[in-house]
């Protein structure tokens, strides 16, 4: 228990790192491929640390992201809360999926997230991002396994289980 408690600083640090990765300037041509890092990190914590990270965590992470990215206040909060809710519902299954299958599920969630975002923009009459942004979930899917390993290793100490 104490070991896990001492490792909790990983959570805020990973969120900040995800925000920074989201802000990092990319060449215009590949901007659309930028994976939604924050969603990946939030998903990880909701799957692995359900007592600490729930809907509230997703909401506030989204709010901070809204401020940082200059999106409409509440937009990313809404998207992440929806994702977090779905994850919570299927958490017990997801945890025992093999990693590849888990990655597929995450890819599906990220795609769903893009749909939600597009719907919000459509409802409010905001411009849609270019079509390449629909490829980002694919990259998120591919990045899930390595990110899972890294965060898991950081969280549970150097020693492999």
């Amino acid at each position: 228990m104490s070991r896990r408690a001492s490792r909790l600083w990983i959570l805020p640090v990973s969120v900040v790192a995800a925000l920074l990765l989201g802000l990092l300037p990319l060449p215009v041509s590949v901007q659309g491929l930028r994976p939604y890092w924050l969603a990946l990190v939030v998903a990880f914590w909701i799957i692995e640390e359900p007592e600490r990270a729930g809907l509230g965590f997703a909401f506030f992470a989204g709010l901070v992201a809204d401020l940082a990215f200059g999106t409409l206040l509440g937009e990313q909060a809404l998207r992440l809360v929806i994702m977090a809710f779905i994850l919570q519902r299927f958490r017990s299954q997801l945890r025992f999926f093999p990693l590849a299958q888990q990655a597929l599920a995450i890819g599906g969630l990220l795609l769903n997230d893009r749909v939600v975002s597009a719907a919000i923009h459509l409802l409010l009459g905001l411009p849609q991002p270019p079509w390449t942004y629909w490829l980002a979930p694919l990259l998120g899917l591919l990045l899930w396994p390595p990110m899972f390993f890294v965060l898991d290793a950081l969280r549970s100490g150097r020693r492999p289980r």
Partner: peptide, 25 residues
């Protein structure tokens, strides 16, 4: 859980609407 979801969704929607029109935020 569902109630909490609805609560957060409502909060987010309120924020979005407030920020979108009005700019009171």
């Amino acid at each position: 859980g569902t109630l909490r979801l609805l609560g957060f969704l409502a909060l987010a929607v309120v924020l979005i609407v407030l920020d979108h029109r009005g700019g009171w935020l």
